[in-house]
């Protein structure tokens, strides 16, 4: 079997601030195969977005990748010279941001921005580039792409802008797309449209998709595998069905219990007490232990990331191995 499209191994991205070292990403590992969707789930401050930025090589000082490997088809992106990274970014690896206005330049027409992206990586004529831009817009379901190419970003609705951002990410049929909360700002019916596009994309081009979100319900329907992050670490990972139906880590269980769902109507939600800790002064050992109902003295030691069931890992010394109704 050949190397997976993307393999992140023990990634550490730290921010060296005046107040101290913020370990935003601290030992994160996951693998995404071609045509598969990896759901990276976590609450705010869990390090999921910084993980995405690290893959694209977009971490700015005072942050830097302090350790680990990001293997793209076997090449380590973490140590790749910037010039080579530029050749890959937007070409083989693309990113979709939460706010499409972060991708789009408000003072340039859509065609200018898209043609520019095509010409940056492909030696084609301007006319050919325009044709590719047009096709990409059509692919993401934008009606009358010829006219829409001549429009400015502000003339589009939020959902349309996100489609344009996706179309730009698609221009070079990348092998990996990192999508950072791309539907969070959108309405339910528009979110459904974007999720449908994402599914089509993976099936059609075999793109490996890293879908970063705080919403467990979205990854439940979309992802093949899931990694749950807490305070910079992956606390649990595995196939989506296993992780959601039989979570090992108490945090995953708490998170699932927090989501209002059909069969829990009117009942109090099982809540996680307390709040997410500051990343500046994380205590040694398990970062979740102050909120964990199963905490014991042994949790003061850093728990290992161990495989408790085939393909399902957890960073916990007392996982829920018995069947728990989530």
């Amino acid at each position: 079997m050949s190397a997976p499209t993307l393999e992140v191994r023990n990634l550490r991205t730290h921010f060296f601030t005046r107040a101290g070292v913020v370990k935003a990403v601290d030992d994160v590992s996951f693998t995404v195969e071609a045509g598969k969707v990896m759901g990276l789930v976590g609450e705010s401050g869990s390090g999921k977005t910084v993980t995405g930025f690290s893959i694209l090589g977009l971490v700015d000082p005072p942050g830097r990748i302090a350790g680990g490997q990001i293997l793209f088809k076997g090449r380590d992106l973490a140590t790749l010279p910037e010039a080579e990274m530029r050749g890959l970014r937007g070409n083989r690896i693309a990113m979709i941001f939460q706010d499409p206005m972060m991708t789009l330049n408000p003072v340039l027409r859509i065609d200018t921005q898209m043609i520019e992206t095509v010409l940056a990586h492909a030696k084609v004529s301007r006319e050919e580039a325009r044709q590719r831009a047009r096709d990409a817009l059509g692919q993401v379901g934008i009606p009358s792409p010829d006219e829409r190419l001549k429009a400015y970003p502000h003339q589009f609705s939020g959902g349309m802008r996100q489609r344009v951002a996706i179309a730009i990410a698609l221009l070079h049929k990348p092998d990996v797309i990192v999508a950072d909360e791309p539907t969070t700002a959108l309405d339910v019916t528009i979110q459904g449209q974007i999720l449908a596009e994402a599914q089509k994309l993976c099936a059609q081009f075999g793109t490996a998709l890293v879908w970063i979100t705080h919403d467990l319900s979205v990854v439940a329907g979309l992802a093949d595998d899931i990694a749950v992050m807490y305070a910079g670490k992956v606390v649990e990972s595995g196939p989506v069905t296993q992780v959601l139906d039989a979570p090992l880590h108490p945090y995953t269980l708490g998170l699932i219990g927090s989501v209002p769902s059909r069969n829990k109507r009117g009942e109090p939600l099982r809540q996680i007490p307390g709040m997410t800790p500051s990343l500046l002064n994380l205590p040694a050992g398990c970062a979740f232990r102050s909120r964990c109902p199963r905490a014991e003295p042994g949790c003061a030691e850093p728990p290992p990331f161990a495989e408790y069931r085939p393909g399902q890992h957890a960073r916990c010394i007392h996982p829920h191995q018995e069947a728990v109704a989530a």
């Binding site: 019916t189 459904g192 319900s217 979205v218 439940a220 769902s261 059909r262």
Partner: peptide, 9 residues
């Protein structure tokens, strides 16, 4: 269209 945690793939 509502994503639900019960729905898989």
């Amino acid at each position: 269209e509502v994503p639900r945690i019960e729905a898989r793939k």
